[in-house]
Lab assay of single mutants.
Amino acid sequence: KLETFPLDVLVNTAAEDLPRGVDPSRKENHLSDEDFKAVFGMTRSAFANLPLWKQQNLKKEKGLF
């Protein structure tokens, strides 16, 4: 399991300012399950079932792209 970080560490943070080991294209993977659901309004599995373009739009909207 990946290390999780608080939302404010990941949202609207440039790649070079992210904690070590965080993939800038997969910031959402480093949210706790609770934060993930609070941000996206759905579970990880529901998010994973969305088309890629919709996932990317949601990530942009939430500052996690």
Rank of each mutant, 00 (worst) to 15 (best):
K1H: 13
V22W: 03
N49C: 12
R44E: 03
R20D: 15
Q55C: 00
L64F: 07
V22M: 03
L50I: 06
T13G: 03
L52R: 12
A48Q: 13
A14R: 13
G21K: 05
N29G: 07
F5Q: 04
S32M: 04
L7S: 03
N57K: 13
E61T: 12
V22L: 03
V11Q: 12
F5M: 05
G63F: 06
L18R: 01
A48F: 09
F65Q: 13
L2E: 08
L7K: 05
K59C: 04
E16L: 07
D35A: 06
P19A: 01
Q55H: 00
G21L: 05
P24C: 06
L10C: 03
N29P: 01
L52Y: 14
L58A: 06
D33G: 06
R20T: 15
N57H: 13
V39C: 14
T43V: 10
K62L: 10
L58W: 05
G41Y: 07
L52I: 12
E61V: 09
A48P: 00
R26T: 08
K62Y: 10
G63L: 06
F47V: 00
D23H: 05
E34Y: 09
H30V: 02
F65D: 15
F40V: 01
L52M: 13
P51H: 04
L18F: 07
S32F: 03
F36R: 00
R20L: 15
L64N: 02
N12M: 08
T4L: 11
W53A: 12
D17Y: 07
M42P: 00
E16S: 09
H30I: 02
F65S: 15
R26L: 08
K59R: 08
N12P: 03
K54P: 00
D35Y: 02
Q56H: 11
K60E: 11
T4Q: 08
F47R: 00
A38T: 14
L52H: 12
L64K: 01
K59P: 00
L2Q: 13
P51N: 04
P51S: 08
L31I: 08
L18P: 06
T13Q: 08
N12C: 12
K59S: 03
T43S: 13
K54G: 07
N12E: 07
N49T: 11
H30R: 03
G21N: 07
E3G: 08
R20I: 15
R44T: 04
L31K: 00
K54H: 14
V39I: 08
N29H: 10
L18H: 04
L50W: 04
A15N: 15
E28K: 01
L64S: 02
E61Y: 05
K62P: 01
E61A: 12
E16V: 09
T4E: 06
D23I: 05
R26G: 06
L50K: 03
K27T: 08
E3S: 09
